[in-house]
Design a protein around this nucleic acid. Structure first.
Length: 463
DNA sequence: CGTCTTTGACCAGCGC
DNA sequence: GCGCTGGTCAAAGACG
């Protein structure tokens, strides 16, 4: 994935566009005729709901494909016509079939044409090679991504995780750390002050695990940050009469408990979009205001999200990478948070006192001067961060009232390090990103009814 | 019959 | 060590 840093939106496009470009190029070049394929460029578009979200990107990449395809195709046709006219052939440009009765000028022209054809064929072969390379790279990336996701899912389980770490600490000799969808170079990460909040988690000690001392520091930092990200939570407060908000994912209830100090039971859900997905969420009504539904997300999906969610996950993962990189200052984190939640302020609070860092998004504020709802009325922005504030209005708007009321990321009463960690958490959480993306998608589909694929959970939740 | 929800039991962490 | 609490498991029942 893209680790080159930069703004979230740019990263998203940088990450996703090449994939579609590759697909498009593959489609164009995979029919055995390379760029000389006479099929209209528009056929390189893949129709289907999953692609609709990327309509803009598709058009861009298609245009790229067409720009490669079309000029050569025209030349070929033109040359063929010229050959036919001058040589009297029916489509063949083979000089061996030309009778000797032609003039010297015709012969010279024929030679020129043949040279041009040869050059075009050579160019065509090169382009085919490029297409093949791009296609292979694309497949390799897909495979790599799937591997990372699989490894990550296999390693996640709070308790088993703790046992695993214990085993490592006990000298199990397992030196290979879990591989997360690590988007930042390990050595670029700061020697984080973000100690693991996980009570069951303890980073391996240098000596006890036989780590290379030169690598131990970054390993410990990485582990601590991973643990932070893994255990940090995103809590969303919103008004809803529904028992559960619709966030685009499928959930299965696995438990319910009465929490202390709250007459309302707390329900526990886990993601069922894929077997073994570690993402869980808790749903509970606010003790003070029963109309407020508090949804807390934890974990990272181990399965491909719908394309929009995937794109957003890429964006936010990149953002996390940026946040966790050594060059990232807390000011960057604040700016990122502001970009991701430009309308947030009082709605976003970060708790460092909880067992796990928890970011709380309070969407229950009064609707006065509500930029979020105003935002809904505007055409969707292409840039994801700009679209982010519309997320909650869109995702939750159909089921609940959704408010926020300011435009700066003020009101945080925690240290810059905590802000960075929590911001990373909120952006890392695929549920959050999925929700963001689903919302953007719903808005786009709302503005582009022609796509006609609005039948996702977001819309289902708005009925 | 498969999937999902319910609900009591169980486990781990923490404070005293 | 004990009790409290949060979180998870898993059997049983409900549902389509």
């Amino acid at each position: 994935m893209d680790t080159s840093g930069g703004g979230p939106a740019v990263l998203t496009l940088d990450t996703s566009a090449p994939l579609f470009l590759a697909s498009s190029l593959t489609a164009a070049g995979g029919r055995g005729r390379g760029v000389l394929n006479r099929k209209p460029p528009s056929t390189s578009l893949t129709s289907g709901s999953e692609m609709d979200f990327f309509a803009n990107e598709k058009k861009t990449t298609t245009a790229t494909t067409a720009s490669v395809d079309h000029p050569l195709k025209v030349k070929k046709e033109d040359l063929t016509i010229q050959t036919d006219l001058h040589l009297g052939n029916t489509g063949s440009s083979d000089a061996s079939m030309v009778d000797d009765g032609m003039s010297k000028e015709d012969r010279n022209e024929l030679v020129a044409i043949q040279a041009e054809l040869a050059r075009m064929n050579e160019e065509n072969e090169k382009l085919r090679g490029i297409l093949s390379q791009v296609s292979n790279d694309y497949k390799a990336l897909q495979l790599h991504l799937a591997t990372l996701i699989q490894q990550r899912s296999n390693n996640y389980s709070p308790r088993k995780e703790a046992m695993k770490e214990k085993t490592i600490n006990d000298g199990g000799g397992e030196l290979v750390p879990r591989q997360f969808m690590d988007l930042a170079p390990v050595n670029s990460r700061s020697s984080s002050s973000t100690a693991s909040p996980d009570r069951s988690f303890s980073p391996p000690e240098v000596g006890s695990v036989g780590l290379d001392p030169s690598k131990a520091s970054s390993y410990g930092d990485q582990q601590a940050q991973e643990a932070t990200l893994r255990k940090t939570r995103v809590s969303v407060r919103a008004r809803s009469e529904a028992p559960m908000i619709t966030d685009g994912c499928q959930w299965r209830k696995y438990g319910q408990k009465m929490a202390k100090g709250n007459p309302c039971p707390r329900a526990y859900y886990r993601c069922t979009m894929a077997a073994g997905c570690p993402v869980r969420k808790q749903v509970q009504r606010c003790a003070d205001d029963r109309s407020v539904l508090i949804t807390t997300y934890e974990g990272t999906h181990n399965h491909p999200l719908p394309p929009p969610a995937m794109a957003m996950a890429s964006t936010t993962s990149s953002a996390v990478s940026m946040l966790l990189s050594g060059s990232t200052s807390s000011a960057d984190g604040m700016m990122l948070a502001r970009n991701l939640l430009p309308c947030s302020s009082n709605m976003a609070t970060i708790s460092a006192s909880a067992p796990f860092p928890t970011v709380t998004l309070d969407l229950t504020q009064p609707p006065s001067a509500n930029p979020l709802l105003q935002y809904q009325l505007r055409p969707p922005a292409v840039a994801f961060p700009s679209a982010a504030p519309a997320t909650f209005a869109s995702v939750f708007g159909g089921q609940m009232q959704c408010y926020n009321n300011q435009s700066t990321f003020s009101g945080l009463q925690v240290s810059p390090e905590t802000v960075t960690a929590a911001t990373a958490a909120i952006t890392k959480d695929p549920n959050f990103t999925a929700a963001l993306t689903a919302a953007v998608r719903s808005i786009i589909s709302g503005n582009n009814q022609a796509s006609g694929d609005g039948g996702d959970d977001v819309n289902a939740g708005q009925k």
